[in-house]
Computed example of a mutant assay.
Amino acid sequence: MTGERFTAGVSRDFLDAHGRNVWGDIRLGELDAAGVDWHYLPRDTGELLAADVDGLDAVLFAGPAVTERTFAGAARPPALFARFGVGYDTVDLDACTRHGSLVTITPDGARRPVATAALTLLLAVLHNLAAKDRLVREARWAEKEQWMGLGLTGRRVGLLGLGNTARDLVGLLRPFEVDVVAYDPYCPPETAEELGVRLADADTVMAEADAVIVMCALTEETHHLVDARRLSLMMRTAVLLNVARGPIVDEAALVEALRLRRIRAAGLDVFETEPPAPGHPLLTLDNVTLSPHALAWTDEMSAGNGGSAVRAVLDVAAGRVPRFVVNRAVLDEPRLVDRLGSRAAARTEAPV
């Protein structure tokens, strides 16, 4: 690897059918400026295979899964899989670690856009925005009195997850003078105290909050964290929002709670199966606001996620460990150590 030009592949799901990057500026120009030889992968695929990535030094990707098959038969798998986004539930971290590949995410790029999207969805649900939009489009203006909203000021907001994005949302909520209670067993108490957030168990958050917002990562531990039992703890006037991952919420149980008006409303940017099937009950309910896993899709997110992923690529090209590595055990893998050492040595001899 020493002295060789650093090569990177970019997943093809960034492109439309005409080959245009629909995400806009994701900072790929910084790869050009650094002398990185990059190209879009030839296939638009839901799963990266060895033939797609073998011989590359890094892969910047959004949608495709990274699995054991990504490495099967690969003579020289990438040293880095830089995920454009914060979720990595479709990435086999164990396989990446075994094969000496770093996996990074972009929490610094997604933090503010997702927090803003959560606030947008919260206000839309509380104000019945989707229902009121339908009233105008369907000439049902006279029914507007049936759709009085709820003000946010002074309410209690419950967060399931108090990571970086949720902490950013706490700041955005301050002008509304809300009380914030959160469930996050991994959040240091002193961090919550600095934010003015009360930590509690998940049941307490569900029972006490006027609005519950799902903002945690999808893991085995959080799968169906919001199930029928926890939904039954919510106040009938409360609303549930999910801007994280669909399977954290038991969708069938949520549909039942909404249908029977056991909770006031819901707002979903994510679903258990994406896209939901035609005729899915969620599509027929008038007390749910929906978005196609794209509410945070803005130029701000494109530049933020792209810049963060590109920085990870440039770090590896220079022989440095990137900032947001999620499989830290790989740092002890001899193959990775050798590759980073080779890049660092090459860096001292000539620009990448």
Results as ranks from 00 to 15, higher is better:
V66N: 13
P175E: 01
L172S: 00
V136N: 01
A75Y: 04
P175Q: 05
L119E: 11
G100L: 09
G109K: 07
L119D: 09
I105G: 02
A95R: 05
G163L: 14
A115H: 03
Y88Q: 00
A82F: 05
W147T: 00
G154A: 03
C96I: 01
R112M: 08
L150D: 08
T67H: 03
F84C: 01
S101V: 09
L126G: 02
L172F: 12
R134Y: 01
G163T: 07
T120P: 00
T90W: 04
G151D: 13
E68H: 11
T104I: 12
T120R: 07
L152T: 04
A82T: 05
V86C: 09
L119C: 14
A117Y: 07
T97G: 11
A82D: 06
G149K: 05
V86R: 05
T104L: 13
A95K: 01
V170Y: 14
G151C: 02
G73N: 10
A142M: 04
G87L: 11
L150S: 13
L159P: 07
C96D: 00
T165M: 15
F84Q: 01
Q146R: 15
A139C: 08
L93Q: 07
R83W: 02
L152H: 04
A79F: 13
R69P: 06
R98D: 15
A65R: 15
V114F: 11
A110F: 14
L126V: 11
R156M: 09
L160G: 10
R112H: 05
I105D: 04
A110I: 12
D92R: 00
A139P: 00
L135E: 01
R83N: 09
A142L: 12
R76G: 08
R111F: 10
G154C: 02
L160T: 08
H127L: 09
R174V: 12
L119H: 12
T67P: 03
A74P: 10
L129S: 01
G109D: 02
L121F: 11
E138M: 02
L122T: 13
K144R: 15
D108Y: 10
P77F: 10
L80H: 11
A79N: 03
F71V: 00
Q146C: 07
A82Q: 07
V114G: 02
P77Y: 06
I105R: 05
A74Y: 14
L152C: 09
A124G: 03
G109Q: 06
G154F: 08
K144C: 08
L80K: 03
T153K: 06
G151K: 02
A82E: 05
D133N: 11
I105W: 08
R137F: 11
I105C: 06
P78G: 14
K144S: 12
G87K: 03
L135Q: 05
E68W: 00
A82K: 09
V170T: 13
G100H: 10
L169M: 11
G85D: 04
D168K: 06
N164G: 14
T120H: 11
A95H: 02
R137P: 00
P77K: 01
T90H: 12
T90E: 06
T90L: 14
R111G: 07
D133P: 00
L159I: 10
G100S: 07
E143W: 11
D168N: 01
V125W: 06
V86M: 13
G100W: 10
F81L: 05
T67R: 13
D179A: 14
T104H: 12
T67Q: 09
V91Q: 07
T153Y: 12
R137I: 13
A115G: 04
A142V: 05
L102N: 04
W141F: 14
T104Y: 14
T116E: 15
F71D: 08
T153G: 10
